[in-house]
Design a protein around this nucleic acid. Structure first.
Lengths: 372, 372
DNA sequence: TTCCTTTTTGACACCGGTTTCCTTTTTCGT
DNA sequence: ACGAAAAAGGAAACCGGTGTCAAAAAGGAA
């Protein structure tokens, strides 16, 4: 197999805009200016110094006299010179590209994270390249290896659920590629993680339900093998135990994080005698499914059943009733994650733990007295 | 102002892994191999040919003898050589980066589009860099100009609503940067657009409502200045006219594409005497708001009121009742848009029109006989 | 076999930056 | 004012590819 052979794309771009030779010289100059971006050589020539001196100015080297610096800066501004990132990347043997690896758990999460990353790199020369990956593909790791080899990224940011894949982290290490994983718990060293405190915040959510008077509380778990599902379930169990509440097996539903699974799992919980008065769902999609299941059975939410979701996705705010849920500070996590790679010394890059918090809306109420 | 001065990030990476001098030589060799990626020179030396010949093989040049090619390919595979994209970019004076400019209209749209783009470029050496932009920022154009100057992208893909900004397209042209705009209508030349047929498909949607027996049909329009809002409203008007139905001013609501605006605008429509039996909403978020407004008033959907949204966003499928809406083939559009840039000759890159289609779910029913 | 094409291959400069190493200038202590 | 040390600036090589153009090899006709 060829390693990344170029499927030569049709040539297009500046070279196309040829200019008839008979155009007036002045226009020629204008065209030349707009056609050819100035290089460091142009700056050096115009300023009457060597390339190296210009390079020093660009890189904010300390050993440049003030007037020299100012003169060169003026020329740079005048010419509109912008350093060529490819040339820099080649000379420095590292580029300024961050990668975002994700397996589309939730579109809003991915986008918020992207914005956080952009917050961090906006003022720098870094750019963010995205790479959706297919968790179910048998060649996922090979694909990613190929991607990393080919693009030679400065570092990658990995979103859940694939962030939980330790082989992937090992691959990054092996390839000398920086990485930061986002997750529901500390999956790795501080410098490689931005993590929420799912376990703890789910405990708070259960506390809140108990505080509202609920005793029979069910859970719809996320799929096995997902760390987030595990943490949330653990938090649920711990809280129930703390309050001395039992969790009969029929109050535990198993879901897949998909809407349909919430629908059916909640249906099972609700069709049993002594059904729960509240259900914690491990994500919002399943919570929306649970809401449907309740509605199909004529069970009022929140009158007869309280529901709490997780993710604070847009759907949580836009269904009826607006759903109480748990939200991660995703944008902040994205920013911190990017900073861990591009400015590890920055103060804001030190944070690794980002507490999620309960977003109280209308899907939780005290249990109806008749049933509780 | 300095043009993109490097905020020198802490140095990190391969150079860090120094190796104590006393390590056995064999280990040194192993380290050297894993530490330093092979270059075209290594391949050339190992194969006993010149760099240029290797380059020809990489680029699938026709004028290479078969045995030579095979010999070099073997060496490449053996060494695990992958061409350095930065060096190629420098030598070719163009890089292999596509940009995605978007103003987060809808997270799922952005992500689907990204996946479409990836479908197109997966097997190539192109990568996709994302750039969320702030439509409301007064320096939006300057920011984008800076971004383009700095990254020197091969081309950019522009998502609505900023795709409707002609100044932005002009900027791309001026900078010699390829671009493709996604929109609700043909905003530009074929080669620069992937467009839906909003007007037409909204006509179909109205046809569908009329076919179900509705006569008093309202609309909640999107914000002024959005081409999509305009097209959808035009399609609505045209269809109503076609069916000989009048559109009293009080059946026209003005929204902002946000949930809240749908809530209040629908409220106004529903609080009038002779309220509509069906409402077309220019996007799903507003449709969800309209649904709430109905529910707040005890109006059954779809029993007393039918609603059609637009976008086929996840929320449409996950609220109750599942909402009839209009969906763009976003992924296909993303793929075609990318191909227009990277392989303009490709057959799939010729398509510019992507018909949206009505997704029938449960929010439309014949009007209740009592009221109609 | 020899000569002339045609096909393959290689030497070398170049893309636009950075680094190394060295020279020139400035600063400063005495 | 002088010499030494420090600061500033420059020449040339290099990063890893590609383009140009000429040389070498191969093939074919005489």
């Amino acid at each position: 197999m060829m390693p990344g052979g170029l499927i030569a794309p049709g040539f297009r771009g500046k070279a196309d805009c040829r200019m008839p030779a008979f155009l007036p010289a002045v226009l020629g100059i204008v065209m030349a200016k707009s056609t050819k971006t100035p290089t460091i050589n142009d700056v050096a020539r115009a300023a009457g110094v060597s390339k190296k001196t210009v390079s020093r100015v660009i890189n904010r080297s300390a050993l440049i006299k003030k007037d020299t610096r100012e003169k060169i800066e003026a020329v740079i501004a005048d010419l509109g010179y912008v350093p060529n990132p490819q040339a820099r990347a080649l000379a420095l043997r590292r580029n300024f590209l961050l990668g975002l690896l994700h397996d589309n758990p939730n579109a809003q999460t991915v986008l918020n994270f992207q914005e956080g990353v952009l917050d961090a790199i906006k003022a720098t020369e870094f750019a963010l390249v995205v790479r959706p990956v297919d968790r179910h593909s048998p060649h996922m790791l090979e694909d990613i290896r190929h991607f990393l080899e080919q693009q030679r990224l400065y570092g990658v940011l990995i979103l859940p659920p694939i962030s939980e894949n330790d082989d992937l982290a090992a691959l990054c290490r092996e390839m000398g590629c920086g990485y930061v994983r986002m997750g529901s718990a500390m999956l790795d060293d501080e410098e490689h993680v931005v993590a929420s405190n799912d376990r703890e915040v789910v405990e708070n959510a259960v506390d809140y339900l108990v505080g509202s008077g609920h005793r029979r509380i069910g859970i719809i778990k996320g799929p096995d093998g997902f760390r987030s599902a595990f943490e949330r379930a653990e938090g649920f169990m711990a809280a129930m135990k703390k309050h001395g509440l039992s969790i009969p097996p029929e109050a535990i539903g198993q879901g897949t994080y998909r809407f349909d699974s919430g629908l059916t799992a909640a249906g099972r919980l609700l069709d049993r005698p002594g059904r729960p008065t509240a259900i914690f769902c491990s994500n919002d999609e399943m919570a929306a499914g649970a809401l449907h299941a309740a509605r199909q059975r004529g069970i009022e939410v929140p009158g007869d059943l309280s529901i709490i979701g997780f993710d604070d996705s847009p759907i949580a705010a836009h269904i009826w009733p607006p759903m109480t849920t748990v939200g991660w500070p995703i944008r902040e996590m994205g920013k911190a994650a990017a900073l861990k790679l591009v400015a590890p010394a920055d103060e804001a890059a030190q944070d690794s733990r980002f507490p999620a918090r309960l977003v109280k809306r209308l899907s939780v109420a005290p249990p109806s007295s008749g049933r509780s």
